[in-house]
Design a protein around this nucleic acid. Structure first.
Lengths: 342, 342
DNA sequence: TGCCAGCGTCGAATCGCTTCGACGAACGGC
DNA sequence: GCCGTTCGTCGAAGCGATTCGACGCTGGCA
């Protein structure tokens, strides 16, 4: 293995000079720098990560904690994870993948051993048991998702309330008066999952402003349960012409069922899905949908941990951050002006 | 930070003794060991990862290289990645996530800097540009996927040939005589993607044995292209009653189109999908499917790198490995005996 | 002309752990 | 009863980087 000392010898300087040339922490003359760079390429030198971590007190690694069985859409989670990795590289950082089957202890371990300088938590639950660990050990961290008490933390998430509001706006603009919100399974609401509640309350508030009548119905997402949900909606409010679906699994069944029930989309019924764009494109007709940025979530989270790591290094207190990224509504083929009342 | 020396002092022994107690590389008396363990818990000691890597010449990290835009099904890839992470932990290893946007250089970097002791490559292409790097630097590695020349490497993959064969068997057993294989887009075959070709040739060979007449048709997977593909199949071979689909995107459209064409599944046409089980369960009727193990792929890959890392440490040459994991056929509701000829 | 500031470089200490050689004690074999 | 092992422990020498203080030089300013 080629070491710093080898490079120094080859370039005819001391090893500290090489180190400073590499880190830029002290001025080095152009001529010396060039000799050093030459030596580095000649010898194909690569600094040893462990040695760097030991001497520099910085591992240049952040840990990304992913759920073992994600609540959310897997491809979305994966896309965020990849965005995190790419963004971290731009800061000279690598990403360690941690599943939370180790529980909060995993976070503790990588921080305590100095394996990771900081942590990004995905799929954060409202009352997440990893958060106390972050607080107790003062670990630089960023959360993707919003816990119930974000004080002292850096968080980034989708702005689900706006997502809900956009749906209400669009349906109201199209003249719909009776709308239904088909959501996640009732368990999700019972345990007060943040994203579900925030979407719903954003939708509810805006629907009220527009004077929409609306029903919210949880739904398991299977074909059978979707059938039941739809039947009940139409029984309770036969005039329902607008549907908002926030449950990936229920989209397909809903479309089939509407069709089977003799309602064509979008002529007789408008459907908005709250889901990633590729999924909206997949259905026929292609769905008007509301979706949030994914890459950006990852990038912001990386920026947030980096800021915290830097703050910790300086010895001061990083300030809290809370960023909600606005979603966008994309009009496709599944929404149209409300049909005239029969 | 609490160091080994602190623990040693607290336990009244030398630091080398603590180290040996921890690693087990030399015998330590029970009594001493217990004092040391007590000291460790008392002080809440965690060994510094960087120092360990530096002194021990082992980072206890493996890199997992994932595709930026996977060819394959994302949830499947993610499941494998998570399985790798969990399996690695059981060996005391952590996993570094690497995207291949750095290209082969990324692999080189983590190995050369000693950041990772070994590498697992996912989504391996037949002629993968990361492989020469592995060979040149003699990096302990395992590949998930089968390159064209696996000599000197450790690989694990699905046994796609058997997957194809299972499909032919099942349809033949049910008495189908004319069958169609709806595959990936023609580009996939033109660039000789291993999984596609191996499935097809496994199917072809077994179909011939059974005396089946069959058509292979590439398919883009969009609704329109699937419609075209199906129409051509039925025009060429109107008696086709069995379908094998190896293209996740085409499954939904195919089912809709068959139904729309007046053929009910499975009474008039049998459909087997080569896809992950959860996806097969999602459709209606639930699909008879062939799928391979996912977790196991990850576990095997980890075992393979570990073996190679150990071999490298011993100084000898790891032996090649090539493991094809058998898929399973699960009979669900989309296959039935062939209808009587009209 | 003399002094101080800052630039560019060096040497040495240090980070926390592993590992090698050595050494005393206990022990079994002949 | 002596010698060669084995067991349990210690001390010291690294591993390969970073960083601090020091030091010689040059240049600007008075």
């Amino acid at each position: 293995m080629v070491t710093l000392a080898d490079v120094a010898r080859h370039a005819g300087v001391s090893s500290s000079t090489v180190s400073y040339a590499l880190s830029g922490k002290r001025p080095i003359s152009d001529e010396t720098r060039q000799r050093i760079e030459q030596a580095i390429t000649d010898l194909d030198y690569h600094p040893h990560a462990g040695a760097r971590a030991l001497a520099g007190k910085r591992s240049h690694i952040i840990a990304l904690v992913v759920p073992l069985h994600p609540d959310v859409h897997v491809p979305t989670m994966t896309e965020i994870a990849i965005a995190v990795t790419v963004a971290a590289r731009e800061h000279g950082y690598d990403v360690l993948l941690l599943t939370n089957d180790e529980g909060p202890e995993g976070v503790r371990r990588v921080a305590a051993t100095g394996l990771a300088d900081g942590v990004i938590l995905m799929d954060v639950r409202l009352d997440d048991d990893r958060i106390p660990v972050l607080r107790a050990q003062e670990i630089p961290a960023a959360l993707i998702g919003l816990p119930d008490d974000p004080a002292g933390l850096s968080c980034v998430d989708h702005d689900f309330a706006t997502a809900g509001a956009l749906c209400a706006d669009h349906l109201a603009d199209l003249g719909h008066r009776d709308v239904a919100f088909i959501g996640y399974s009732s368990g999700v609401y019972r345990r007060h999952a943040g994203y579900a509640e925030r979407t719903l309350s954003g939708f509810r508030a805006r629907a009220a402003q527009h004077g929409l009548r609306f029903l919210h119905r949880p739904c398991e997402g299977t074909y059978e349960s979707t059938a039941g949900t739809l039947a009940r909606i139409l029984a309770d409010r036969p005039d329902t012409t607008g549907f908002v679906v926030q449950n990936e699994a229920a989209i397909g069944p809903l479309l089939s069922l509407l069709r089977a029930g003799g309602r064509t989309v979008p002529e007789d019924a408008s459907v908005i899905a709250i889901c990633p764009d590729p999924m909206a494109e997949l259905h026929s007709p292609r769905l008007t949908s509301v979706s949030g940025p994914k890459k950006e979530l990852g990038q912001v989270a990386v920026d947030q941990v980096m800021a915290r790591i830097a703050a910790t290094a300086r010895g001061d207190h990083a300030q809290d951050q809370l960023l909600l990224m606005p979603p966008e509504l994309t009009v496709r083929e599944s929404t149209a002006p409300a049909p005239h009342r029969s």
